[in-house]
Structures are given as structure tokens and as C-alpha cells.
């Protein structure tokens, strides 16, 4: 079996007396899609925050990426090493055009030196996520939700990441848009990206995930094959509560 690309070990994030992520440990293999589920407030997004150190670092614990510790690096260094992330909300640079949103990312990498090459790479990233070519010069802030999500994902993909952290990419989308998002996630994975996917749309999570991890109150309560995990009584109890 190949070495894990990402190892999270005993990761903890505290906000005063509240422990949002409590000693979480897991490994992710190259090319895998690890689904992450859990009730609201279970620490899913905080886990992504602590791994990427945006907007805050972990309180304790270690993150290894390709065998090297990254939990002590600056957040922009973590991104440059190859861990990209999208936000739950469509976090684009609203006053920049769609192509400039992606160009900003390309310019942080060593993927191209000439400006024309950088533009070509930005166009390639937008094409890859299925963003319409006719809208490249539109201000990203004026786009509808689905297209803003595509711009955000294109920006992350433009980093050429080994690991992509997607935080609720299907939130706020229509059924047909969720289908397109499902196809996009699968396509990115086929291109070799390892994906950590936080999602509330369980059907999407079940279909694309190789393994599923469930968090509750900051702790991992189940990890394994998606079908087995969703049948786990502890998981059902976390979502639905204890029968009266």
C-alpha cells in the first residue's frame, strides 16, 4: 500500500473553554476521496482551518504532508506546498474578473514565467472546472452562486495541488448543479488529486467518497467504508439523537 499523502495526528483546536477539534487523527492515501460528515458544529470546517492554518492554527497536534511536517509553516507556504482549499461560502475576489481570480493564484506558483503562459494556465484551470469561456472577464462578485463556486475551485486547482480540501461545495446549489459538482469532483480525482470533502449532501458524499469519516463534538466517531459508517449506531445517534 502506498504511503499516506496526508497524516493528521492528534489535532486539537480550542477556543477558550470550547474544544472544537479534539485529538483528531487520520491518514489519507494518494488518490483517495475522504468524505467528512457530521452534524453542524461538529468541527469539520475547523478541522480544515487547522490543517491549512487559515484563518487560525491548531492548538496542538501534527500534520504531515508527503512525510514532512507542515503544521509549523506559514499558511501561504502550506498552499504552495500543494494543499489547496475552498470555503463553504463562495469566497472569491469579488471585484476582480474571473480570470484575474485564477491568475492571482497562478502568479504565486512557479508554473509559468511569461504572462501569456500564466493567462493560458488560468484559462486552462477555468476550462477544467467547466467555467464558461464567455464569462472570463466578468467580475466574479456578479456571478451566480454556482459559477462563483467554480471560480473558487479553479483558483484552488490552479495551485496544482496534491491534496484538495473542499468545504461544502454543494451548499446552496440546485439538484442539477449538485450533479455537475459531483461530476467535477470525480473528474478532479481522476486527474490525480487527493480530495478531502466536507459535505452535508449525504448522497453526494456517499457516491464519491472512498472512505467516510464522521465527526461529532470535535471527535472522530466513525471512519471507514461509507456504507458501514452510515449504518453505525453511534453515527445515527449523533445525527438523530437517542430514541426516547
Amino acid at each position: 500500500m502506498s504511503e499516506p499523502v496526508l497524516v493528521v495526528s492528534d489535532l486539537t483546536k480550542k477556543f477558550g473553554a470550547l474544544t472544537a477539534v479534539d485529538g483528531v487523527s487520520f491518514e489519507v492515501r494518494p488518490g483517495e476521496i475522504l468524505g467528512i460528515a457530521g452534524p453542524n458544529g461538529s468541527g469539520k470546517s475547523t478541522l480544515f482551518n487547522a490543517i491549512t492554518r487559515v484563518p487560525f492554527a491548531q492548538t496542538s497536534g501534527i500534520v504531515l504532508f508527503k512525510g514532512a511536517q507542515i503544521s509549523n509553516l506559514a499558511n501561504n507556504e502550506i498552499a504552495k506546498r500543494g494543499i489547496a482549499r475552498t470555503f463553504q461560502r463562495e469566497s472569491v475576489f469579488g471585484n476582480l474578473s474571473s480570470i484575474d481570480n485564477v491568475l492571482v493564484t497562478i502568479e504565486q506558483t512557479n508554473r509559468a514565467s511569461a504572462f501569456a503562459q500564466k493567462i493560458a494556465l488560468a484559462e486552462q484551470a477555468l476550462d477544467l472546472v467547466g467555467f464558461p469561456a464567455t464569462l472570463h472577464n466578468w467580475q466574479a462578485g456578479r456571478l451566480p452562486v454556482y459559477l462563483r463556486k467554480l471560480v473558487m475551485i479553479a483558483g484552488a486547482v490552479a495551485l496544482d495541488p496534491a491534496v484538495l480540501l473542499l468545504d461544502e461545495p454543494a451548499s446552496g446549489l440546485t439538484v442539477s448543479e449538485i450533479d455537475k459538482m459531483r461530476a467535477l469532483i470525480t473528474h478532479l480525482n481522476e486527474l490525480g488529486m487527493t480530495i478531502l470533502l466536507v459535505e452535508h449532501v449525504l448522497s453526494l458524499l456517499m457516491e464519491v467518497s472512498d472512505r467516510l469519516m464522521v465527526l461529532d463534538q470535535g471527535r472522530v466517531i466513525a471512519l471507514g467504508d461509507p456504507a458501514t459508517v452510515v449504518a453505525n449506531p453511534t453515527v445515527i445517534e449523533a445525527y438523530l439523537g437517542t430514541p426516547a
Binding site: 487559515v54 484563518p55 499558511n75 501561504n76 470555503f87 492571482v104 493564484t105 506558483t109 495551485l159
Partner: peptide, 8 residues
Amino acid sequence: QAAELMGL
């Protein structure tokens, strides 16, 4: 935050 995630 998005800028930090894009490596800026």
C-alpha cells in the same frame, strides 16, 4: 482568507 489559501 481566500488570498492566504491561494498562497499569497
